[in-house]
């Protein structure tokens, strides 16, 4: 790659993009309560402090339950919609699909408030299940986008060939469709898991007295003394997200390879 102004700009851009995240581990291992330069020395005490915070463990458990349920539900709903959108034409298709994809652009605050108000008006208590419902709503569009990619990469005549050779529609789905979209399904599960794990607004509005990890973190931000611990927790969360993403990307690429296609870009 030649060193043109454009290359320099792009590299600087990438650097700035990552700058805040790079600071996370720096201060998570810094032996000082103030988040400022110069660094004070190496310590793992902030990570150790995470271990003896029971409230944090409960929040982590909540988050995991929510993220796992969300990723499963959103991927199932995404499978239905992505399959319908790629395989069939039906009246008002653009409108129907557009409406389902709406949470992608709608401010999360609007989604959160409208869900909260409905719950309040119905006199229901919000909690883990309502967060799962909200997260499923906002994750489904992502699942659809990923799965639509998998479905449309698949030559439609592959399924016709299987039916032509004597398989029923269901066994065709099992023998041909499912193996070819499995990488997409796994990528969708991982991405939805990541989104749900990191999502704050909906969880914040709907969590009641069962905070998720980000809601717990939000509560800690008020206490300056807790900041290094927050940095440690943030480090773990970011590393977890990156790992999940790399995994998802690996599966996406494997899916492309399996379908015998060339890689043309990333998610979405």
């Amino acid at each position: 790659m030649r060193l043109t102004p454009l290359t320099v700009f792009a590299s600087l851009y990438l650097l700035v993009l990552y700058a805040p995240i790079v600071l996370l581990p720096l201060f998570a291992f810094n032996d000082g309560t103030v988040i400022a330069f110069p660094l004070q020395g190496f310590t793992t005490q902030w990570f150790a402090a995470l271990l003896d915070t029971p409230a944090l463990h409960q929040a982590t458990l909540n988050s995991l339950v929510i993220a796992v349920s969300t990723s499963v539900f959103a991927t199932i709903l995404g499978l239905f919609a992505a399959r319908a959108a790629t395989r069939y034409s039906f009246p008002a298709k653009a409108g129907v699909v557009g409406f389902i994809m709406l949470p992608l652009v709608l401010p999360e605050v609007i989604v959160a408030i409208s869900l909260l108000i409905v719950l309040m008006q119905l006199g229901l208590d919000s909690g883990t299940w309502s967060i799962i419902a909200g997260h499923t709503l906002i994750c489904t569009p992502f699942a659809i986008a990923i799965l639509q990619g998998s479905f449309s990469n698949m030559d439609r005549s592959l399924e016709e060939a299987a039916v032509d050779l004597g398989e029923t529609p269901w066994s065709t789905f099992r023998l041909i469709t499912l193996p070819l979209v499995t990488p997409g399904i796994i990528a969708s599960l991982l991405i939805c898991f990541t989104i749900s794990l990191d999502e704050f607004i909906i969880a914040f509005f709907l969590s009641g007295n069962e905070p998720t990890l980000p809601v717990y973190l939000w509560g800690q931000l008020r206490f300056p003394a807790r900041l290094p611990v927050v940095m440690a927790l943030g480090t773990i969360l970011v590393i977890l997200s990156v790992l999940l993403l790399v995994l998802a990307e690996t599966f996406r690429r494997r899916g492309l390879k399996r379908a015998g296609l060339k890689d043309t870009g990333g998610f979405l």
Binding site: L158, E160, A161, D164, L165, T168, R258
Partner: peptide, 19 residues
């Protein structure tokens, strides 16, 4: 349905199962 007809087809794209 196609799976019950005594016909078989060679598709334009060949539809060779890639997996």
């Amino acid at each position: 349905p196609p799976n019950k007809r005594p016909t078989n087809m060679v598709f334009q794209s060949y539809a060779i199962f890639p997996h």
